[in-house]
Design a protein around this nucleic acid. Structure first.
Length: 106
DNA sequence: TCGCCCCGGCGTCAGAGGTC
DNA sequence: GACCTCTGACGCCGGGGCGA
């Protein structure tokens, strides 16, 4: 499902910090190119049909937009969890290194 | 049980930004 | 400039939790 696995703790600190980007998934129709049936419909439709069509497209776009946003937030939450784990591990490592250093100095 | 509040999802509108 | 997609903002609705 998501790219963030949640079990990267010590390595790969900079690896996928660019994850969780909101991006176009390519699910929308291409805007250029050959004439689509949609475009043909829009050309021949009356104003109220055009409005219905526009509302329907926007309805679907809003649904998709919300789905992507939820996915993005979930991805961010996963990253937070991963980074918190990394942070804990690093703090622990630092503590033990300090300990070792102190024993050597004494 | 009822009224209230909160939350999540939905549809719609408006506006920004891209493409032709 | 016309048309398109995407997304923030707004209001509405249904469901669940909670106190009276």
């Amino acid at each position: 499902m998501m790219a963030v696995t949640g079990d990267e703790t010590e390595t790969g600190t900079s690896g996928d910090l660019t994850a969780c980007q909101l991006q176009n998934t390519g699910s929308s129709l291409p805007q250029g190119g050959a004439e689509t049936s949609t475009q043909e419909f829009v050309k021949s439709a009356n104003p109220s049909q055009k409005r219905e069509h526009r509302l329907m497209k926007n309805r679907e776009a809003a649904r998709e937009c919300r789905r992507k946003k939820k996915e993005y937030v979930k991805c961010l939450e996963n990253r937070v969890a991963v980074l918190e784990n990394q942070n804990k591990t690093l703090i622990e490592e630092l503590r033990s290194l300090k300990d070792i250093y102190r024993h050597k100095v004494e």
